[in-house]
Simulated assay, not measured.
Amino acid sequence: MKLTPATTKTLKNGVKIPILGLGVYKAPKEETESIVYTALKQGYRHIDSAQFYGNEREVGLAIAKYLKDEPGSSRNDVFYTTKLAPTNATYEQAKSAILESLEKVKEIGYIDLCLIHSPALEKTQRLDMWKALQEFYEEGRIKAIGVSNYSVLLLKELLGWEGLKVEPSVNQFELNPWLLRLDLCEFCNEKGIVIEAFSPLTRGKRLDDPELLRLIEKSYPGKTTAQILIRWSLQMGFIPLPKSSNEQRLLANLQSLDFEISDEDMKQLTHENDYYVSNPAFDPIKKYFDKW
């Protein structure tokens, strides 16, 4: 099947999510609206923000502007994700924070997907945050809910909670050819939890990797290492969320949909025994593995 920016996966509740997203972490606040608007004009249909990023308002304005300017477009054409900051760790704090996020994007009416950005330290906090998300989901103001940086143990905790009414649809965590997290991916697939890959470009740290460069020279002339990494994620069944503020690179990243990596090359690219985290200081899954 030919892939396009509008190609979707179906979440367990029936919501359609585009297979490639644009991450806006560290996008300058004063430039975010322009970056997102440009990306939407290029064909992106999935934007990934967060309370922690401080640019939800700008993303919402860009989506609203695009929908107004683009003939024949509707709200269903753009998928918007935000994330609940783990500092909002009580039920009331979480409810208040979600209301603020909804207010910041009031021009687009609702949030397609809201994730817990990173697990709070205490079980009661994690479950209180989920309780709040469930309520907004049941009201229809959020169309799907999920988690980010959750380990297998934390997913089991949530799925086994007696107060669970809505199962998580998504788990977002860092993945790349040198960071596979096989057990976590296998568990998510078994439970029907769609996997999103943040930092699929290794924060740029391995874009000059000699193996990638040799592979391009041998089999994919004209492609970039970023396109190879994004395509790898897509063929692994993940939803990659590359980020860029450069118009040319935004378009180039979309072109990862235009080719396929052979089975042989996928095998060569996939390093099951490595554990390469692009920012070791931020790896909640490993940091709290023994505790959780």
Rank of each mutant, 00 (worst) to 15 (best):
G163A: 07
A27G: 00
K95W: 11
R57S: 09
K29P: 00
E107F: 09
T87D: 14
K106N: 13
F52T: 11
R203Q: 14
K165D: 00
E92G: 00
E103S: 14
T225H: 06
N176L: 02
I142V: 15
R126N: 08
I116G: 01
L175V: 09
N13W: 05
K191E: 13
T7R: 12
T224D: 09
Y276W: 12
E103D: 15
G109I: 09
F52W: 13
R141V: 08
P221Q: 14
A226R: 03
A226M: 04
Q51Y: 14
T225E: 05
D112E: 12
L182G: 00
D69L: 01
L84F: 08
T87V: 15
R231L: 10
K41L: 10
D77Q: 13
K243L: 04
R75N: 14
G222N: 10
L127I: 12
Q235C: 04
I19L: 14
T10H: 04
A64W: 12
I142H: 00
L250R: 06
L153I: 02
E103Y: 12
G72T: 13
L254N: 05
E103Q: 14
A64E: 11
T124P: 00
L179E: 10
L61C: 07
L234P: 00
T7H: 12
S151A: 08
P177V: 01
F289T: 04
V277M: 01
S199A: 15
L250C: 09
N279H: 13
N171M: 08
N171H: 08
L40T: 10
G54M: 12
Q93G: 11
N171G: 05
Q51V: 02
N171K: 06
G43Y: 08
E167L: 09
L234M: 05
R141G: 01
G109H: 13
N171S: 09
I145K: 02
W161K: 03
G222K: 07
L213Q: 15
D183A: 14
P210E: 13
I98V: 13
H117Y: 03
L215P: 05
R141D: 09
V105P: 03
R203M: 13
K165Y: 04
F173Q: 03
A62S: 02
E186G: 03
F136M: 06
R214H: 06
R206D: 04
E190L: 13
N55M: 02
F198T: 03
L61T: 01
N76M: 12
E196F: 11
N13A: 07
A97C: 11
T270P: 06
L251P: 00
K205R: 15
D258I: 08
F289Q: 13
R45F: 09
E103L: 10
D112I: 05
L269Y: 10
D183F: 02
S199L: 11
E56C: 05
L11N: 05
L180V: 14
T81M: 03
W178T: 06
L254P: 05
V24R: 02
A62W: 01
K104S: 11
N253Y: 06
D112G: 06
K218I: 01
W130H: 08
E30G: 01
T90K: 08
S262T: 15
L251A: 14
L154N: 01
E31K: 15
P200D: 07
E272S: 06
I63G: 02
P210D: 13
D183V: 07
E33C: 03
G14N: 09
G163E: 13
R75T: 10
